[in-house]
């Protein structure tokens, strides 16, 4: 008798399952979604890291936008020129020159240079530490817990032994994730043509800034005077702000900087290889 029930159960459930699956199989054929095969092909070209550098929710959305023609074929910053060329070839349009953008960390006040006036023992993330304004006296400085390094999907950043993030100039593809993560906005995205930077975001008056960090911008104005073009560098909120449209990219304004916070051509020196070669042997 038990055997009979087992067989009946199996048969009835099997029957219901079979009928429903037949029905679904039919519905699947009827309601099949025709996806544009070009989206798949474009996805194979794109890096598929979903870094968000193009300003869209992911590589798939960018691929859809490319097909609809609402995105620029040079929009994929992470892929660079090679991907742009491939997209152009696939879509049969003329390639554009992709401008390479890299992240620049605009703070050089590491553990050696910046004065600390607090001890922070909470969660070791910049986002959390920023709520308590961090350990350093300078409230514009890098907090130094490496949220930016964590968020980098391309291993293009590392925290150096001075507690500051470094960007590997050869690896960074400009997706901007680090700049969006940094709670103090000290990371900026710049095209390769920009070579001179003021590595300080401190808006305090010169005397205050000098006291809390050795490499702060003290708003002395020497770089403003030394810039070859009038208005190439402006002094805004006690900070030298470089006007990249006007200022010639040379080391002229940097020579007399008393705190050496405005530097020329420093970014391109830092590649992944030079960084790891500079580390002590046991740390590698």
């Amino acid at each position: 008798m038990t055997g009979g029930i087992v067989i009946i159960s199996m048969a009835s459930m099997g029957g219901i399952g079979a009928i429903l699956s037949l029905f679904l199989a039919y519905a699947d054929k009827k309601l099949k979604v025709e996806e544009d095969p070009r989206i798949e092909a474009l996805l194979n070209i794109l890096p598929n890291t979903n870094c968000g550098g193009c300003g869209r929710a992911g590589c798939r959305v960018f691929a859809e936008a490319l097909i609809q023609g609402t995105a620029s074929i040079a929009g994929c910053v992470a892929g660079g020129q090679a991907v742009t060329d491939n997209i152009a070839e696939y879509l049969g349009v003329e390639s554009q020159k992709a401008s390479r953008i890299v992240a620049v960390v605009l703070c050089r006040g590491g553990n050696k240079e910046a004065v600390k006036n607090a001890v922070y023992k909470g969660e070791r993330t910049c986002a959390a530490a920023n709520l308590a304004s961090g350990e350093k006296a300078c409230i514009y400085s890098c907090i130094g817990y490496g949220d930016c390094v964590q968020v980098c999907k391309f291993d293009a950043m590392a925290m150096n032994d001075n507690g500051l993030p470094v960007v590997f100039h050869d690896i960074c593809n400009g997706c901007g994730a680090c700049a969006r993560t940094c709670p103090r906005d000290i990371i900026e995205m710049h095209p390769l043509e920009h070579k001179i930077f003021n590595y300080c975001r401190n808006k305090d008056k010169g005397a205050v800034a000098r006291k809390i960090c050795k490499v702060s911008c003290i708003a002395c104005g020497l770089c403003v005077k030394d810039c070859a073009v009038e208005g190439g560098i402006d002094m805004i909120d006690n900070l030298a702000v470089i006007n990249y449209d006007k200022c010639p990219q040379d080391d002229q304004p940097t020579k007399r900087c008393p705190t050496a916070c405005i530097i020329f051509g420093e970014e391109e020196k830092m590649t992944r290889e030079t960084y790891y070669a500079s580390l002590p042997k046991e740390a590698v």
Binding site: S9, S12, M13, I16, G17, L20
Partner: peptide
Amino acid sequence: ILVKFNVPFLEYVAFIIA
């Protein structure tokens, strides 16, 4: 099905499948 074949204890499984 379930009542007719006297297997109403299968109701959850059958309902969930449906």
